[in-house]
C-alpha cells in the first residue's frame, strides 16, 4: 500500500514538474493522461486539473485545496474493494490516533444532554460549494444520526452500530467514559480505517461538544436511556 502511494506520489511530483515547466494545466488534453497510472491521474484530476474549485475559502480559514490533500490516514485508508490493511499499518494508524487525543482538564464530566441531543441530530457544518454552511449563524453538528440509531424518537441511519440505551446497557464507569470520549474524538484509536469521522482530531467538535454528546449517551434522563 505505502509502496503504491510512493510510486503514485513520485509520478505526481514528476507531473507537477512538467506542468510548472510552462505547460498550463487545462482540461483540453494538453497534459498526456495516457502516460499516467489511474492513481497518478486521480491525484492530477483532484488537485491540478481545475475540476474542483480549490480556491474557495473554507470555514476553518484555509482554502478548499486543503480539504482534498490527503493526510497519512486518508491515504492508508483509501482501500479499494477487496484491499485490506496490513497489520503494521493498522498498528500505526491506531497508535497515531491515540496520540492525537487531547483529554478534558477536568476529567470526563458529562455535560448538557439536551444540547448533546441537538448536536447528535444536526448534520450542519463545513459544506462548501454553491451553498456553503455559515458557522456564524448556526452551530456545527456532529452528524451522529446519519449513521447511528440512538434514541428511538428520531430515525437514525444503519451504517453505524445501534446506540439505543447506550448508558443503561454499558454503565458509566471511568473506563466506559474514557472509551466513549476516545471513540468520538478519534475512532481509529480502536477501529482502524472506520468510516466514522475524527471529530476531535479534525476540530469538528470541541471537548465541550463531546462531553455534551456523552451526556446524551449516558445520562439516565436522556431519551437514549428511556
Amino acid at each position: 500500500m505505502f509502496k503504491k502511494n510512493l510510486v503514485a506520489a513520485s509520478i505526481l511530483a514528476a507531473t507537477s514538474l512538467l506542468l510548472t515547466g510552462g505547460c498550463a494545466a487545462t482540461n483540453t488534453g494538453k497534459v498526456d493522461y495516457s502516460k499516467m497510472t489511474p492513481e497518478a491521474l486521480a491525484e492530477y484530476l483532484t488537485l491540478e486539473s481545475g475540476s474542483f474549485d480549490l480556491d474557495q475559502p473554507t470555514q476553518e480559514g484555509t482554502t478548499a485545496r486543503s480539504r482534498v490533500v490527503q493526510d497519512d490516514l486518508q491515504k492508508a485508508c483509501s482501500l479499494k474493494k477487496g484491499q485490506e490493511l496490513d497489520d503494521q499499518t493498522r498498528a500505526k494508524i491506531m497508535a497515531d490516533a491515540a496520540a492525537s487525543i487531547k483529554y478534558p482538564a477536568g476529567g470526563f464530566k458529562l455535560g448538557d444532554w439536551k444540547r448533546g441531543r441537538e448536536l447528535a441530530w444536526s448534520g450542519f457544518g463545513f459544506r462548501l460549494g454553491n451553498n456553503p454552511d455559515n458557522h456564524k449563524t448556526r452551530e456545527v453538528g456532529a452528524n451522529c444520526y446519519n449513521c447511528h440509531q440512538i434514541a428511538t424518537d428520531r430515525t437514525g441511519g444503519t451504517l453505524g452500530t445501534v446506540l439505543t440505551g447506550y448508558g443503561k446497557l454499558r454503565g458509566n464507569s471511568e473506563d466506559m467514559l474514557k472509551y466513549t470520549y476516545e471513540v468520538i474524538y478519534n475512532p481509529h484509536t480502536y477501529y482502524a480505517c472506520t468510516i466514522m469521522p475524527r471529530s476531535g482530531t479534525k476540530n469538528i467538535l470541541s471537548q465541550k461538544d463531546i462531553l455534551d454528546i456523552m451526556a446524551y449517551l449516558f445520562d439516565p434522563n436522556s431519551p437514549v436511556n428511556k
Binding site: 480539504r67 490527503q70 483509501s78 452528524n143 479534525k202 469538528i204
Partner: peptide, 10 residues
Amino acid sequence: VMFYRRSGNM
C-alpha cells in the same frame, strides 16, 4: 480510485 479516495475534514 477517486471513488475510494478518502479526504475532506470528515
